[in-house]
Structures are given as structure tokens and as C-alpha cells.
């Protein structure tokens, strides 16, 4: 199969993720969309790795997974504490950081 198709798929996944980040209010959903974007990137990396015939992209993909895991830990913790303090998981309710 032509590896370029993987790139099309990755672009599609990334766009779905980006749209989700922009239009959904629920923090959990936003979070999952971010994960989707990250994994779209991973897919690209792996695809390129395959296309160029070296392993660099796959190694970076592993890095990304580790970072994503760390992010999940921190991100979910923030979302949980936000939910505790305001009884809502909507990102629009947390809009205090402004001038």
C-alpha cells in the first residue's frame, strides 16, 4: 500500500482533533481531541520513517507517547481539581486568566 495514504489519514485525524479542541467545551473531550492530534502526529512520523527507510521517526514517536502519557497525568489531575472547585468540566467556565 502506498504510504502516502497514511499521511492522508493522519491529516484527517489531526483535523478532527483540532476541530474538536476548538468547538467542544467539555474538558475531557478537548483532552481526548488533543490526544487524537498527538497520535495523528505519531502516525505521520511512523509513515515518514517508513518512507525514508530509517528509524528516526519511530524513535520520536516513542518519545511522543511518553510525553503524551505524562501529559495525561498532569492534564487529568488539573481537570479533576477544576471539576472539584467549580463542579463543571467546561473549559469556558475557567476564564479567570485574563487582563
Amino acid at each position: 500500500m502506498n504510504p502516502v495514504n497514511y499521511l492522508y489519514l493522519a491529516a484527517l485525524l489531526f483535523s478532527i482533533g483540532a476541530t474538536g479542541v476548538l468547538i467542544r467545551r467539555n474538558a475531557i473531550v478537548v483532552f481526548m481531541c488533543i490526544e487524537l492530534m498527538l497520535n495523528a502526529c505519531n502516525l505521520t512520523l511512523v509513515a515518514f520513517s517508513r518512507m525514508h527507510g530509517n528509524l528516526d521517526g519511530q524513535i520520536i514517536a516513542f518519545f511522543t507517547m511518553v510525553v503524551a502519557a505524562a501529559e495525561v497525568v498532569v492534564g487529568l489531575a488539573i481537570i479533576v481539581s477544576l471539576f472539584r472547585s467549580r463542579h463543571s468540566a467546561s473549559v469556558d467556565d475557567a476564564s479567570l486568566m485574563k487582563l
Binding site: L22, V30, D92, S95
Partner: peptide, 10 residues
């Protein structure tokens, strides 16, 4: 700087 995460994302 309106505080909405999603507009920052945009």
C-alpha cells in the same frame, strides 16, 4: 486576552 482556552487555541 479573554480567558477562553478555545479562542487562544484558534
Amino acid at each position: 486576552q479573554n480567558g477562553f482556552v478555545r479562542s487562544y487555541a484558534v
